[in-house]
Write a protein that binds this DNA or RNA. Structure first.
Lengths: 138, 138
DNA sequence: GTACATTTGTGCGTATGTATG
DNA sequence: TCATACATACGCACAAATGTA
């Protein structure tokens, strides 16, 4: 599978699809580094912007993490600690704002969980580290 | 508040911060259109790429929605329908992949909720339309 | 400690395509 | 038809971070 510049599908989307497939197939394992932008530019015979936008897509999906001066890594599936959703509570998921993301040291593409307990108190949790549970019955 | 090209903070981040502040302060109301790229480019005296990347940040945060040939709109806070997290079930939040996002017709910057019931069956819900709840009496 | 190569980040210019009004 | 505006994509240049010789 390669890039088709004449396709109606944007080149950068094709790049994202190619790389995502390589990650999901296990060709690129968690923790490994993606080929550099220059490498992908050459291999696919496309411009750097298309490569960068493709990578940006995967970053927004939380699949990879990019380190300046080093490269883009496949994010490891974290162990999720189980957190009990309190009785009478509720939760919504959303993307953090820039400041929130910085303050919580979240990677791109990682949502936050806004958990409200029955009193109305709110806790913000990183969605990539948490699995919310509800016990069977007590 | 304006743009400082000599700041260590990237210009496009400053753009995102400025626009986010205008949205959160109520200067830009839900449903209203952001200034055009050309306008922001002129007003801030910066390049188009910086403007586009700043806008892209807010899109990834789910704050705005961009319509080609028209502009970028401030997303309205949706009514969230309450969905009960089943007893013995659990939920994680993550960003959808490209195909998932397309299939569910989700805007950028909208996470999905992966709800598992006690049998292990999984349901995928759009996180911007749903508030998960747990009733008081178990 | 310095110098260098590699890699990503940022910014600008240009061009073409497409959708809207 | 025409102007406006966003989407995509190429090129180039330099800055900043990283790792290594």
């Amino acid at each position: 599978m390669t890039i088709d510049p004449r396709s109606h599908t944007p080149v950068y989307v094709q790049v994202a699809d190619l790389l995502r497939a390589r990650i999901e197939s296990g060709d690129l394992l968690a923790g490994s580094v993606l080929p550099s932008e220059a490498r992908l530019t050459q291999e696919y015979g496309i411009g750097r912007e298309a490569v960068r936008m493709g990578i940006s897509v995967l970053r927004s999906e939380g699949l990879i993490r990019t380190v300046r001066g080093h490269g883009s890594y496949v994010r490891k599936a974290l162990e999720r600690r189980q957190v009990e959703l309190p009785a009478g509570g509720s939760v919504i998921a959303r993307m953090p704002t820039g400041p929130e993301r910085h303050g919580m040291e979240l990677d791109e593409g990682v949502p936050v969980l806004e958990v409200r307990d029955r009193k109305g108190d709110v806790k913000l949790l990183p969605a990539d580290e948490v699995e919310l549970t509800r016990p069977t019955s007590t």
